[in-house]
């Protein structure tokens, strides 16, 4: 019995040490990516190729889900606001909830599962098939050639995708509230413009998406690079990317929100 307890404590300790070790390795890897990204920014065609895969190919899922989220917000907002006779404020509600929270968070979650997992699987498979080792043999740095372009492509495309998500979401809300239900169009837009502040709401939302973009792609490239070079290892790394980056997005969102929106008084 005591031996079992000792083994249990040992396994807990081992896990803690292992996760701290991985965190340190991930930070070192992140710094290395930043340092070596000079070449990838120099050869920008590499980044453009990755922008196509992470950005352009995520467009459809982002646009469709943005439209539906906006439409649902329009319906639900109307349903509740109508009780207080404030249905013309539905535009304000849709715009503020999209710009501050739903746009950045939902598009980052979609981005993590659509593009982040693909990045991890691609890099992990490159490692499993020894392509990364072959690059090193040819004196090509895999971090500069493979990791950094994917990182920068993710960082660039995330704010653009989130902006598209919010913009199409607002039009989705407009579609439901104004065209379907019949809220007055003028008050829909004018109340929205009266309540949404460019610096306070739009810029803070963009800052959020930039942070999420960095977090998601940094996690994705690290998990891919760190994956065990087996089929099982790659699948585990892909799962970890989605789980870790979703948790990171939600945790970072709480931290950023508590810094940004602490009441206007």
């Amino acid at each position: 019995m005591p031996r079992r307890i000792v083994a249990g404590i040992q396994s807990v300790g081992h896990r803690v040490i292992d996760s701290i070790w991985r965190l340190g390795y991930a930070s070192r890897f992140f710094l290395l990516t930043l340092i070596k990204s000079g070449t990838s920014l120099h050869r920008f065609t590499l980044v453009i190729r990755e922008l196509y895969f992470t950005g352009v190919q995520s467009l459809i899922i982002i646009l469709v889900s943005g439209l539906f989220v906006g439409m649902v917000l329009g319906l639900q907002g109307f349903e509740t606001l109508q009780r207080y006779g404030a249905e013309s404020a539905v535009g304000t509600m849709v715009a503020l909830s999209l710009l501050r929270e739903l746009g950045p968070v939902v598009s980052a979650l979609l981005f993590a599962s659509r593009a982040g997992s693909a990045i991890t699987a691609e890099i992990g498979l490159m490692k499993a098939t020894e392509q990364l080792a072959a690059m090193e043999m040819m004196a090509v740095d895999p971090i500069a050639r493979v990791v950094a372009p994917r990182f920068w492509a993710g960082v660039i495309s995330m704010p653009l995708l989130a902006a598209l998500f919010s913009a199409i979401g607002v039009y989705g809300g407009y579609l439901v509230a104004v065209i379907l239900i019949g809220v007055d169009e003028g008050s829909f837009w004018s109340q929205m413009q009266g309540a949404v502040d460019f610096r306070y709401d739009v810029v803070n939302g963009i800052i959020k998406t930039c942070v999420f973009g960095i977090a998601v792609t940094a996690i994705a490239v690290f998990e891919g690079y760190d994956a065990a070079p087996t089929a099982e290892g790659v699948s585990g790394a892909t799962t970890r990317t989605v789980v870790t980056s979703s948790l990171a997005i939600l945790g970072l969102d709480f931290i950023l929100t508590s810094f940004m929106f602490r009441g206007m008084g």
Partner: peptide, 13 residues
Amino acid sequence: GIGALLVLALKVG
């Protein structure tokens, strides 16, 4: 993407 940012700034904001 930049167009969407402009929409957010000018039409929504």
